[in-house]
Design a protein around this nucleic acid. Structure first.
Lengths: 201, 201
DNA sequence: TTGTTTTCTTGTCCTGGTTCAATGCCCGGC
DNA sequence: GCCGGGCATTGAACCAGGACAAGAAAACAA
């Protein structure tokens, strides 16, 4: 067995993320890492509140985060669950410096890498290649969301749930069930009923 | 009245689109234009069929196009209506050269500018600035879709419809009502009932 | 350990929206 | 200028899923 090329360090996961997206040199990687801010955040912390301007993009080293909206009646709609090796942000707010209409909240104790708008600018101007990486990230995001919209509109609660646990098999073990209901767009009670009906068959 | 700075030509609209997104020089614009393929397409033409690999991004000079999915039961879900000054494509399929799961169809006679994957590559390598333009396009797309998902999940058919005509006031005059229903995720019959209820008040 | 809070389950009743079918309408083709 | 096919409308029956309430079970704090 070959020795590992690098000693395991906290940058490993994000660096491997990056190299998977685009061929970057060692120096570029080093520069990238040098601009990252490391942050530990406790469970149940709200990282972004509706009305705030989102000044971060966070890469999750460890933990679980959800982003959600709240409507006038107080109903929550979960937009995304993010776990290890994912990015979280409100890009629209981050990019245009305008107030966000969503919330971002940790569901577990988290370790994050943070970049803010100015470090992102710096990064992009120094390593233009990254423009592409970020574009690909957003593109992937978009196509996932497109297929989710389709599922949301076209399928029953049961099928939405089955699709969810199929797509994200590890999430149900990590987050409360009523969050999943709010992701699927159904009531927590009905999700519970759907689950028992499924397990009886 | 001042004379127009340029004679009106078919590139005007797309060039103004581009300059709105990013500061580009005259030469860059010219190069960009030189790579565009102009195309006329008749009403009711399917530009992309489920299973095909999408080999175009189309800018609409004139006309109206919709993109949609079809589920197993044959129910259509309209993902997008696109009119003048919009882009249409299945980016995921276009970019990764993989089979698309959507349809793209003209609803009116259309005039388009087309770029294919290789011209896009060429464009991006010659004018790296465009990376950013395309990223912004996708980002805007994403945040529109996010808020649509929210509306779809959290609001009633009536409110979804009101939101739609508020956001896209010109669309209802141009496309058949049952397409709008399929965009909102409700049955054509119920949209009709909702509309009559609204007009009675 | 115990008390407190949050989450999950289950039942009953209710409603927004669907399905199906019938009717009328408008628009395009010949 | 008329005929035919897609659209919109309306009504009646139906149903997936919501709202509310009450209890059980976890999760957590002290």
């Amino acid at each position: 067995m070959q020795p590992a090329p690098y000693i395991c360090c906290m940058f490993d996961s994000i660096n491997s993320y990056l190299t998977r997206c685009s061929p970057v040199t060692g120096e570029e990687l080093e520069y990238f890492d040098s601009l990252l801010e490391y942050k530990k955040v406790a469970k149940k912390t709200t990282l972004l509140h509706e009305g705030d301007i989102c000044n971060f993009e966070a890469y999750i080293i460890k933990g679980c985060i959800r982003t959600y909206y709240i409507d006038e009646k107080g109903i929550e709609v979960t937009l995304q669950f993010a776990i290890e090796d994912w990015w979280v942000s409100d890009i629209a707010s981050f990019h245009d410096h305008k107030p966000s209409s969503m919330f971002i909240e940790t569901l577990e104790d988290c370790e994050l890498f943070i970049i803010n708008p100015s470090t992102k600018e710096l990064l992009l101007s120094k390593i233009p290649k990254l423009e592409r990486v970020f574009r690909l990230m957003v593109q992937r995001n978009l196509s996932v969301l497109q297929s989710r919209l389709f599922t949301t509109i076209a399928t029953s609660a049961k099928d939405k749930y089955l699709d969810f646990i199929n797509r994200y098999p590890t999430i149900p073990q990590r987050v409360a069930q009523h969050y999943i209901a709010s992701y699927l767009g159904i009531s927590p009670e009905f999700l519970s009923k759907t689950r028992t009906r499924l397990s009886k068959k």
